[in-house]
């Protein structure tokens, strides 16, 4: 286990090696996006249209979504690395490939959690935002969301292997689809034209939108967690199978 911890630690430090000053733009952008977003929701929600969510719930939802963004929609380095042919490197180490990918990804979360999420959490009361989850079931739901995120990422990685040259295209499409379908940008229950009813059951809805809805107390905990569990049970075996089938493609990538 220590080996994975050490891999994660290196991955975390790697991001700060060029100097923490170079993380500053990332942090500032996140902060500068979050604050207007909070105000955007204030403006929108003050219109008085009934959407089954209070303004404070909506603002907490947006705030937490930003603080935990990397966990709510997991993105490992697998897809990017394939194009560089360096996934091969992971096979040369006496550790599980998926384990290494997880360790590297978790490691990469740390600098932003420390430098953005932590200070913003401390600042939340200043903006009058509540960061107390309405149910402790938020935590298992977050774990299920992260677990499912890894499975979904695995699928996209396999798709990248299959389609070779199209890695960055797949990445762009994926980010666009997930942004809309996961409910991390707009809560699914706010979608018009009855889209909310259709979108609730698709697998991406079991990602970020689920723990966030439990956090603010707008979701039925039991059915939400059961849906997350179901998607985990369905997608993980399929993801592992796809990963296994794609192994040759990963190793032979680059000729």
């Amino acid at each position: 286990m220590y080996r994975y911890y050490y891999t994660a630690k290196l991955s975390a430090i790697e991001k700060t090696n060029g100097g923490t000053i170079y993380l500053l733009p990332d942090i500032l952008i996140k902060a500068f996006t979050l604050i207007p977003l909070v105000y955007l929701w204030r403006v929108v929600m003050s219109s008085g249209v009934e959407v089954g969510m209070t303004m404070s719930q909506m603002i907490s939802y947006t705030y937490v979504s930003s603080l935990l963004s990397e966990m709510l929609v997991v993105k490992t380095a697998a897809t990017g690395w394939l194009s560089e042919g360096t996934l091969l490197k992971l096979y040369g180490r006496p550790l599980s490939v998926l384990g290494q990918l997880s360790a590297l990804t978790v490691g990469r979360w740390m600098p932003m959690l420390l430098l953005f999420s932590l200070p913003m959490t401390l600042l939340a009361p200043v903006f009058g935002i509540s960061l107390i989850p309405s149910s402790v079931w938020f935590f298992p739901s977050l774990l299920l969301c992260i677990s499912l995120g890894f499975a979904v990422d695995c699928f996209f990685a396999c798709l990248s292997i299959k389609l070779r040259n199209m890695t960055w295209l797949i990445d762009r499409i994926r980010m666009a689809i997930i942004a809309l379908f996961s409910g991390t940008v707009i809560p699914i229950r706010l979608l018009p034209f009855g889209l909310d009813q259709i979108m609730r059951f698709q697998p991406f809805a079991a990602l970020g939108g689920s723990p966030l809805s439990i956090f603010v107390g707008t979701a039925d905990v039991r059915s939400t967690i059961l849906l997350q569990l179901a998607w985990n049970i369905v997608l993980w075996p399929l993801a592992l199978l796809a990963f296994k089938k794609s192994q040759e493609g990963m190793v032979s990538y680059g000729g």
Binding site: L40, V44, S47, V49, V51, P192
Partner: peptide, 9 residues
């Protein structure tokens, strides 16, 4: 979609 749902912003 938000603009539609909330009848403008």
């Amino acid at each position: 979609l938000i603009a539609i749902r909330f009848d403008g912003i």
